[in-house]
Design a protein around this nucleic acid. Structure first.
Lengths: 196, 196
DNA sequence: AAGGATGTCTAGCCCTGCTAGGATTCCGTC
DNA sequence: GACGGAATCCTAGCAGGGCTAGACATCCTT
């Protein structure tokens, strides 16, 4: 491959990421319903069909944003877990970090967990960042427990329910801290690694 | 008001309900993305603008379907609660009934909890059926506990998370029974009225 | 029977995601 | 340096979405 082609490849990859970040910024600024292919094309200063030379469709763009989000979420949770104040508080710290993430980046969270994407989750084709984020929950529980994954799934489900019901106004956002406290207390009773 | 007007009023109310059930049936048969105003109008054998003489827009139609769903859910949960096999198993019975409802009527469930509607939830304008469904969860906990509502919110959130993550393929549907079992066990530890 | 109000439909607006085909630009070769 | 070919990009347009204005018809009232 010639040097010219390599440059083109670089530019193409750069534009690829440009589209993703533009979609994300637009969504975070005005919500996903404002993210249309026309507005997105205008934003990256190309015509519409260019988008389709990078992605198979709009869903694929949302999926790309979501994957970026999974990486950030995994890092966010890991940071919270490692900075947990005392032993036995890691589960609470990770859960709180999760809810914070959902509140502070609602559009990103929607791309990851609400909007329709063509991502494979619990399978072999699961994107690594997605698995990494989930594993942060898993590692909050005793390593010797064979039901760690189950615990993590339920914890994650509860947090997701709280996040999405709160975001859509179906429960009041005020009580989140209390709900979090109750959830963690109940879950931790049998399962959390409070003694590692 | 003349008898003629009364007849018209009746016919109008009948057509109103006809639209709602048509929307619901279409959604349950082919999913909400197949429910367009054109197809809906064709289904009720009227032209499009007729829909807008009954509802302010498509969102309002979805909301109407959702309200019907809340009534059914409330009745469904009540039935499960009253038919609970033994004392102390009511919470488990109600939770299982909730998940069953979500699995068996996925389109209805989406209208109630996922799609955008203009319904007010935790407020004074909350539709009574909605409040009734929520109260079924509340009444699973000790009447003397002042945190019953909190318990109910967290339980509901967890179930909703499980339902929606499972429906969208983000967790495997197989483990639902195990997750339910774990959730109920943890929640019941402090809060469920196992001795009433 | 004429007038008026009510109800309904046809036609169309502007939006969406997406694509075909022509025009342009740029690279490698002679 | 000029040309042929290929890669790239844009203009224009399609089908279908939610929604609405205005014409048409229908029916009750006077």
């Amino acid at each position: 491959m010639s040097a010219v082609n390599e440059r083109r490849e670089r530019e193409r990859a750069h534009r690829h990421q440009l589209i993703i970040t533009a979609a994300r910024e637009l969504a975070e600024a005005e919500g996903w319903e404002a993210v249309t292919t026309r507005r997105l094309a205008e934003r990256v200063e190309y015509s519409q069909p260019v988008l389709y030379s990078h992605f198979t469709g709009k869903d694929a763009i949302v999926s790309a944003v979501a994957i970026d989000g999974f990486s950030e979420l995994a890092a966010h949770l890991r940071r919270a877990r490692q900075a947990a104040p005392e032993q036995g508080q890691t589960l609470r710290a990770v859960c709180r970090a999760y809810l914070n993430f959902a509140v502070e980046r609602p559009a990103l969270y929607q791309a990851m967990f609400v909007l329709h994407t063509d991502l494979k989750f619990a399978s072999a084709e699961t994107p690594p960042p997605l698995r990494a984020a989930f594993d942060e929950f898993v590692s909050c529980f005793r390593p010797d427990s064979q039901r760690r994954e189950l615990f993590a799934e339920v914890t994650w489900s509860a947090l997701h329910g709280m996040a999405v019901l709160s975001d859509s106004g179906r429960i009041l956002p005020d009580g989140q801290e209390e709900r979090l406290d109750f959830l963690v207390t109940q879950i931790a009773d049998s399962g959390a690694s409070r003694d590692d």
